[in-house]
Write a protein that binds this DNA or RNA. Sequence first.
DNA 1: TCGTATTTCGTGTACGTTAACGCAATATAA
DNA 2: TTATATTGCGTTAACGTACACGAAATACGA
Lengths: 352, 352
Amino acid sequence: MGKQQNYGIKEIAKRANVSIGTVDRVIHKRKGVSEKTRLKILKIIEELDYQPNVLASRLASKKIYRIGVLVPSASKETDFWNAPINGMKRAAEEIKQYGVEIYYCFFQLHSRDSFLTQIDNLWKKEVHGVILSPLFKEDARQFVADCNKQKLPLVYIDSYLEDQKALSYIGFNLNDSGRQVAQLFDYCLDGKDKILVANISWKIDDFHIEQGFRSYLIDKGSTRPVIKVDIRHTDYAYIKDSLQNLLKDHTDIKGIFVTNSRVNIVAKFMEDIGRKDIFIIGYDMTEENLKYLKNGTIHFLICHKPEFQGYQGIMTLYQYLVLGADVKEMQYMPIDILTNQNYQYYQMSNEL
Amino acid sequence: MGKQQNYGIKEIAKRANVSIGTVDRVIHKRKGVSEKTRLKILKIIEELDYQPNVLASRLASKKIYRIGVLVPSASKETDFWNAPINGMKRAAEEIKQYGVEIYYCFFQLHSRDSFLTQIDNLWKKEVHGVILSPLFKEDARQFVADCNKQKLPLVYIDSYLEDQKALSYIGFNLNDSGRQVAQLFDYCLDGKDKILVANISWKIDDFHIEQGFRSYLIDKGSTRPVIKVDIRHTDYAYIKDSLQNLLKDHTDIKGIFVTNSRVNIVAKFMEDIGRKDIFIIGYDMTEENLKYLKNGTIHFLICHKPEFQGYQGIMTLYQYLVLGADVKEMQYMPIDILTNQNYQYYQMSNEL
DNA sequence: TCGTATTTCGTGTACGTTAACGCAATATAA
DNA sequence: TTATATTGCGTTAACGTACACGAAATACGA
């Protein structure tokens, strides 16, 4: 609409009767300017609503912004982390002109040692910002504290430590995610059908999800029976055994909610025993999960824009470091519901 | 990872034993260069995999790119178009540094005259690219033809003309969208429950959606009864009348599928007659629809990232005009499933 | 052959910002 | 007082590209 005249430091300098050098010093909060002229210049900057020209700024500056990324590597067990990494690479491509470089430090999902090793690794890079998946809570807590001490901006991705503040959190609301799943079951099953909630993980990390799941049913005054199982191993044989026993004890199970991306293992089991009458919902569109979503064994997958999480993680640090902008502390991803009818459009390939 | 040396036109000039001026002429395909040196320079550009520095390029160029936007204005009847407009404004904010300016030409949803007026309006602006919602097919067809003749890049948004090519289409796949709705009903209703498909519009524009809806049921071998009604007026009194008659004739209707964003009118009717046993699915998270989604009268809303559609429309033209990049001809939006449990996270504020 | 037109190319300035350099003016120490 | 630091500020050369201007080289006509 309005042809808005954009003033630069030259105009500011002219109005303040100083040189552009002085204006530059004020803008960059460098020293060598008397308080009097500093205030005068700041006032004019305010008046003109000066917006620095990022292009020219970047062109003249040779500053390099290094971002360290500390996340699990994609493993045979789950390729989930491929998606955020792709998003980060896409972001990096977009903003490499602005001197942003990314250093990936991948640790093993189950190895605390590798996590510690990669932290050391990261410190050596002398980065200006960090993206962290704080899976090993204790060590992560220490690491975040160190970053805070050094005023290193840090962005949590996928999960966060409630007792350790950071620049931003990018991920989803576990509780509401669980509630959504409860609603889907409630819509798709009869009122009295029994549901099995299965946490398949070497540690218990689904507390909030289960909480949300149950809270929805309570809110609705549902009398639906729900049983919970924790399966602490992720190999097929063990899981098969556990499920077999469960289905024997509870022949009336009509739905299974797997609280993470291992839902494909349950699906495989269902196929193996030839049962197609159980409604299955799980998390994340990994390759394996997609297989069973396509053939109808898995009915819904809940996703939280994994690729965009990575993209947004990088962009958040870019906005903070390069543009000096404020960033939101909590950036919740949508709760996306995927089926074999809409999964094909869920390839947020080019940004947005 | 790799510290990749980025060469500029200076390096190219040096290697070709010419001045940067000549290199510049070759890059911009201006005349005044002998074929021999042109080829030599092109070869070197190829070898070095020269990537122009967009920042410097923009800084040095005073070129302005004007984009004309020809879409319906948000009306009392539906505020749907607010969302794409917001997305466009967000995009404009992001790339204004690159000299992109946007001219909005809003026409009235039901007034062909206003559409023609706005076309005239647009021509006066001498834009370099156009975003079009081709609701008035005949006139739009002529307009797109004119744009093509003038080599004006044009991006369809929300719907497109199959017989008139353009640079890109941003919207969704109507057929698959209808299929998704059919699956949701199939999951949530009993196998024999009757569904009413309602098209509430002054013209018939849901052909592909209904087609997709029915094709899913056929593929599944479903024997579910489906009836269709076209309601050609959008005022509550008329719709109420139509629905009242339908529900009297078909007392066994368990689900209603409204093929556009007018689903809130049906929801209001259901509330007024106090029926809560009918499963309702419709389109778009408009303010009115959201009201009934929240209170549980509407069960699912299908959305197609309206805000992102606008954002992507602008970005597509930006990439084509400013960056000279190739763009995808069909850019399908995801088929998002919204409930009263996840709608609150569907504020795709920043990208995607 | 000379003169002119045309083609082909190099030079220079500008875009808005960064940051090094250096010169005054003032303060501090001797 | 003079010598030396320190503070406050202006000047200037980049950054990589766009484009106007004009110079050199070549072609063409007589």
